[in-house]
Amino acid sequence: MLETSARLLRLRFDYRAHDGSESRRETEPHRLVHTGVRWYLVAWDTGRADRRNFRVDRMSLRPPAGPRFTPRQPPEQDVRDFVSWEVALGRYRYQARFTVQAPAHVVAEHIAPTSGLVEPLDEHSCTLRAGSNSLNGLAVYVSLLGHDFTVHEPPELVEHVRLMAGRLRAATPTPD
């Protein structure tokens, strides 16, 4: 439980988004998280009235610090899971869900936390969630894992994989 007497300073910064656009932000910082590749700030964005994460290398601090604030309750999910979901899925046009016929620990060895989320289903299979702006990218990504898989969503990806499978079958001559 957060102590209500705790008061922290808001953090103000200029931020360059993934698409190159720039904005000014005022946040109530919660925690820094390292994904294994980059650092992210998890914070309450006061201008958007929502919890967000920000790549630290895209931030330019704007002194002085903002007014004091009382910390909010952290997200219900683990903060690392929140950042992983946002980075691996949240910003992409397509958010896919697959069942992979391999144990979660085996699949997780090939999936960075910034590329996808792996959840065990049982000792022989797992769910993989990944995002991309390209249906081809998602189809190839999961295919390269080297395990049988089923595509569940989005519907566009299910149809796209059906079409790709037909093309691949047609590209392979059948033995006489």
Rank of each mutant, 00 (worst) to 15 (best):
V107K: 07
M1S: 14
H110I: 04
V140C: 03
Y15Q: 00
F98L: 06
V83H: 12
D176R: 14
F69R: 01
M59Q: 02
E156Q: 14
T46V: 02
S143G: 13
E156S: 05
V140D: 04
V56T: 03
D14G: 13
L41I: 02
R25C: 03
S115E: 15
C126I: 03
D148K: 10
S23M: 09
A6R: 13
E156L: 10
L41T: 00
P173S: 14
A65I: 08
L117I: 15
V79F: 06
F54S: 01
T99V: 15
A65W: 12
F69C: 02
E156N: 12
S125L: 03
V158S: 02
P120S: 10
P173R: 07
Q101E: 15
L9W: 13
Y92D: 09
D81W: 12
A102D: 02
P113T: 04
R16S: 00
L89G: 05
W39E: 00
V107S: 09
R72M: 03
E3Q: 15
R129W: 07
S125W: 05
L168Y: 08
F54D: 01
M59N: 01
D50S: 12
E86P: 01
S60Q: 15
R12C: 02
P154F: 06
V118K: 05
T4I: 06
A96V: 10
H110Q: 12
E86G: 13
N133F: 07
A88I: 01
V87S: 02
N136W: 09
L163T: 06
L144G: 11
G47I: 00
L8Q: 09
A17R: 09
P103E: 04
A88T: 00
Y40C: 02
A130W: 05
G146Y: 07
L145K: 05
H152N: 08
P103Y: 09
E22N: 08
H30Q: 10
S143L: 11
E123H: 13
P75H: 01
L2A: 13
R31P: 05
R162L: 06
R25S: 01
V151Y: 07
E119L: 14
V151E: 10
V42T: 13
A130G: 09
V140M: 08
H110T: 10
T127C: 08
G47K: 00
V151F: 06
V100L: 12
R169N: 14
R38G: 02
Y141M: 12
A96Q: 08
N53Q: 11
F82D: 04
N53P: 04
E159R: 14
R51A: 03
N133K: 05
V79A: 08
R72N: 06
Q77V: 13
P74I: 06
V118N: 10
E28R: 01
L144S: 13
L121V: 15
P113S: 09
L9S: 15
V142C: 01
A171P: 10
V106E: 15
A65M: 14
S132T: 12
L32Y: 15
H110M: 07
L157N: 09
E109F: 00
T70W: 11
L145W: 03
L61Y: 08
T174C: 08
Q77D: 11
P154T: 03
F13C: 13
E123F: 07
P154V: 05
Q73T: 12
R10T: 01
E76K: 14
R55H: 00
A170H: 15
P75L: 04
L168R: 10
H152F: 11
V79T: 14
